[in-house]
Nucleic acid binder design. Structure first.
Lengths: 361, 361
DNA sequence: CGATAGACTGCAAACGATTGCAGAAACGCT
DNA sequence: AGCGTTTCTGCAATCGTTTGCAGTCTATCG
């Protein structure tokens, strides 16, 4: 079917091994034949067969990226970054979707190593630590975004404590004293860490922590809606909400729209992790950027390092943190410390929005 | 490193070939040894090496999906569908991102066939027809969403004429007579087809085509903004806008928000292809669904068919169309035929929105 | 009881590359 | 000229499977 080394060898009247050496550029062939063979190979349209090569060398030039889904914008950019970086180095990316499901993750991991992938970047579910640990003996692995506590794998994490701190501080600096927090499940690292960043910022500013303003929940839009309602229905509702649970954002936005709450006039809104449409939304939504791009790049760097190092590429560092940064757009507003802004409450109690509420909630 | 057939054979004191036959279930081994070998293989944790197998059989159990990007929601669901279907059949999906760039597409295609993929689903750029045609001799290929006119490859397409027709008719049925259309570049199939569907619906309803209401442009948010402005600035602006250019949607939404145009009260808005947040948006945005899920499923069906058929799986059909359907949400409103609704124009000429306009446009 | 079909099994050659080893050629040196 | 180096090339084994062919064994039948 396709042109093999043998074909080239025959055409050039030399042995297969000579062709192999010439084309891989080992320097063990004479300049003259080297060039001649390269030319002939090109003329014949020879393309090395990675499968055959892989069988012999045990390498596949395949690197896998295992993420939970592709709906999350962060995973999208990570996939694109990883793909671009790897392609430039002659690797093919195997993108796998694990759905945050341990069983699927486990299956996928197994088939991946079967395929002799040269490296793996994985967002672990956290439930297959043992397996990951075993596999890491055969193949370089870097964890991304989440840590699997059962392993000591090299892990590239977002700096969530820092990000949440930055976001909260921003709101405080704008004069907000009552800041609602909608955050993820507290049995996840990111959930806990973001809460801690929020708390730290509050403490530094000398603002008392008010647990009625803090809501933790699942990574789903519905959670955002529920929590937002609870916050807005408070006797003294917050003047700002920090949605540090990415997936919950849609729910929050829906509730504010339903209740006709103007952002940022009635309520300041700060979200976590970008979505492509945030900057097109009016008002453009301010966010804490978790640095998806940087995360992906660093993960690739570390993976490549390990792959080069052939086994023991651990430089002692187990964990890398990628700085978060604040992207100010138009959804947060300074409130006057002296004459506090009308609270969202006042608006939501108007006849119109309460009608909307009873109708749609 | 890992357990091979040889290891199993030694443990069982039989030959490698027997083990191979027993495990692949060719029925050429006695019931008894078959079961024994399977048991031993499992005990030893044997896992077949796809690379070695691939070298011999010429198959890799890898199927590639080549799309333009992952930002587009349709591509996301397609990727997820394809991945799920293939995994169930024991294939691994190789997801590649071509960026709608002919050069990248060409490179990727080449490495994919090098890797001896068993099948390929591709959203073609349209510039590598010759290459695709050549490759299709070696590997089953199905085109998705776009046709490459230089080939006669089997192609699964959305029914854009139908979708655009459905959408337009919906707006007409709601009483709209002046319907703005924002559509994609006219050198793409989808761009042309959607325009034709729109025109057909108009004609059927006996509404004269007004070219000032029709804007074709690039697949970018900015295009949407520009076109929306042009439409809204018309002496007699439309009462409804049909955004049949998915990527342009964000731009349109921004402009309506900037100008404080209430949807659907001041303007009805109908979009093409879903985004995950459309139903969370207030008002929830009505769309014409291009059937991404069905498209992906059909593409997989056809590909599998071809892969089974070993070469000549063409059933004469070259082109499949997947029906579009209308999803009514809250962004389109019935307008009274007798007393026409206040047009967007009246609103946009209020002091507030014109201030916004001069400031931000 | 011997022949023979039928059911299993093993040998060995592939698949297309890489690579250790040894032979050949070319060269310089005494 | 003879010898040792150096440089290049080819032979053949190997990676882990699959598979055609031939051989072995059992059972069946005449």
């Amino acid at each position: 079917m396709s042109v093999t080394l043998k074909d080239v060898a025959q055409a050039a009247r030399v042995s297969v091994s000579t062709v192999s050496r010439a084309l891989t550029g080992t320097g063990l062939t004479s300049e003259r034949t080297q060039q001649r063979l390269v030319r002939i190979a090109r003329e014949l349209g020879y393309r090395p067969n990675p499968i055959a090569r892989g069988l012999k060398t045990g390498q596949s030039r395949l690197v896998a990226l295992l993420v939970h889904n592709l709906t999350n914008a962060s995973f999208q950019v990570m996939a694109e970054v990883v793909q671009a970086r790897l392609k430039a180095l002659g690797y093919q990316m195997l993108l796998c979707i694990g759905g945050d499901d341990p069983q699927q993750e486990s299956d996928t991991l197994a088939t991946l190593v079967d395929h002799r992938i040269d490296g793996l970047i994985v967002v672990p579910t956290g439930k297959n630590g043992a397996q990951l640990k075993t596999l890491s003996k055969d193949v370089p692995i870097v964890c991304l975004v989440r840590r699997d506590d059962a392993t000591d794998l090299e892990t590239v994490l977002a700096d969530d404590p820092q990000g949440a701190y930055l976001g909260t501080r921003h709101l405080i600096e704008l004069g907000h004293k009552r800041i609602g927090l909608i955050v993820g499940r507290q049995d996840t690292t990111s959930g806990r860490e973001r809460l801690s960043g929020y708390v730290r910022a509050l403490r530094e500013a000398g603002i008392a922590r008010d647990d009625t303003l803090i809501h933790a929940g699942h990574f789903e839009p519905e959670t955002g809606a529920t929590c937002a309602r609870k916050l807005l229905d408070l006797p003294r509702p917050p003047s700002a909400i920090f949605v540090a649970n990415h997936e919950a954002t849609l729910g929050v936005l829906r509730v504010t729209a339903e209740r006709n709450i103007a952002i940022p006039d009635d309520l300041s809104l700060l979200c976590y992790e970008d979505m492509p449409w945030f900057e097109w939304h009016r008002p453009a939504i301010s966010i804490v950027d978790n640095g998806a791009r940087d995360l992906a790049n660093l993960a690739v760097d570390r993976l490549l390092h390990r792959m080069d190092a052939k086994g023991n590429g651990n430089d002692g560092v187990r964990e890398y943190r990628v700085g978060a940064r604040l992207i100010k757009r138009d959804s947060c507003r300074r409130i006057d410390a002296l004459a506090p802004a009308k609270s969202a409450k006042s608006k939501s109690s108007s006849s119109k929005s309460s009608a909307a509420k009873s109708a749609k909630v």
